[in-house]
Design a protein around this nucleic acid. Structure first.
Length: 125
RNA sequence: UUUACAGGCGGCCUUAUCGCGCUUUAUCAAAUAAAGUGAGGAAAGUCCGGACACCGAAGUGCAGUAUAGCGGGUAACGCCCGUCGCCCAUGUGUUUAAUAUGGGAAGGACAAGUGCAACAGAAAGAAUGUACGGGUAAUGCCGUAGUGAAAUCAGGUAAACUCUAUACGGUGCAACGCCAUGUAAAUCAGUGUUUGAGGGUUGCACGCCCAAAUUGAAGGGUAGGCGGAUAGAACUUAGCGGUAACGCUAAGUCUAGAUAAAUGAUAAGGAAGCUCCAUUUAUGGAGUUACAGAAUCCGGCUUAUAGCCUGUAUUAAAC
RNA sequence: CGGGAUGUGGCGCAGUCUGGUAGCGCACACGGCUGGGGGCCGUGUGGUCGCAGGUUCAAAUCCUGUCAUCCCGA
């Protein structure tokens, strides 16, 4: 079941999200930015995921929803490749920093490269 | 065929591979499977009106806010319908008047009081001028001229204060109820109290309530979870009443309920409209297809909007 | 979801309550003082008063609608 993305995998806790902004580590690959942190004690689905698009860049709710859906889709299709055998529990938060409407391709490529970097970092430790 | 106005529809269809929310069924549960279902006319702005919920009195007075011909519709409204007067445009008529059609608008009161009117002008409210003409015994008086938006009339102005009539308790689903977690000030109930600072209660006043101590009881916050929460002033069709808004009756239908927030992604093909180009005048090629995403729920208003359909009026061309 | 404020020359502000002339500082242009710069002095340019409609003889000002920006509460 590598391509599913259910409700449980969404990062929902307000306090964890607040901590991410305070002391999370970040990886950037334009137009995306990933903020992540290792969570201890581990969460139930070990990897939890969230998306955010700033209201300042995109005023309309339709555009913001569209970008969030694209990012979520790209994450859903690629997460199995990276996280199936990972150690530890992580919270991930993707931010979209671009100013123009993306297509699926312009989302997927930087997302893959960010995930590769993330895996490399966690293995080094 | 052009333009304007009014009303309606409004990101289409198929296949493949993945995927999401909710409901029901199957399994002890979890996970899973199957079936069903899943954004709008504005879901938006939050400008009005309600439903619904709560408040230690939500009381009295003042203040404040809103509305404004008349009649009707409605749960209610500042919304909608009809109508009278007013204003504008066009046609007929034409010295004026009148009349037809269409459109517009917050349309009570200035003989209750207070205020305001730049510049110009003699004068803008306790003011009656100047010139010419008329008239008279003479003055008062009458007309014309000039300034100005308004000039002799106790005028104009209330989208000036104000007055009159009517309506309004306050706060809002982040209301409110419940569950789990559990340290202290704090809360609730009973007993009790003289003075009174102080505090609370709707902007103010009155009024009302609280307040030491002691006994007893159950809990509150803590970005957590559940309920509130989706069947309703609902929708569709038919008949009847009404100029209309709308109402009544009957039959049928079930029509989103998320919560860092579901309704999507990729690929291929197709249909229709519009624009541009080419020409064998009917085809080919290219481009484009809006505004925009439910968040307690309804009724309005306002704003955004490609294209299509219907109706009315109008313009031009051809026959 | 609820509440509040602000839009005026290039920039920062006053004027709005109480309607008739849009003003101040900085900046800009020209001239003067100086050998030159800075500084000071003088003169000048520059504003659909966010937008639309209405009331009025007359609107930055009053009324209605609308757009944008900012702030606050939970």
């Amino acid at each position: 079941m590598p391509f599913q993305f259910s409700k449980q995998e969404k990062l929902k806790s307000r306090s964890i999200i607040g901590d991410l902004f305070d002391k999370g580590l970040s990886l950037k690959q334009s137009p995306l930015k990933l903020i992540y942190a290792k969570i201890d004690p581990p969460l139930e689905p070990k990897i939890q995921f969230a998306v955010a698009v700033p209201k300042k860049s995109f005023k309309g709710a339709v555009e913001r929803n569209r970008i969030k859906r694209l990012i979520r889709e790209a994450y859903r299709l690629n997460k199995g490749e990276f996280f199936n055998n990972i150690e530890g529990s992580y919270a991930l938060l993707f931010l979209y920093l671009g100013k123009e409407m993306p297509t699926f391709d312009t989302i997927e490529k930087p997302l893959i490269s960010i995930l590769e970097n993330l895996i490399n970092r966690t293995n080094e430790k």
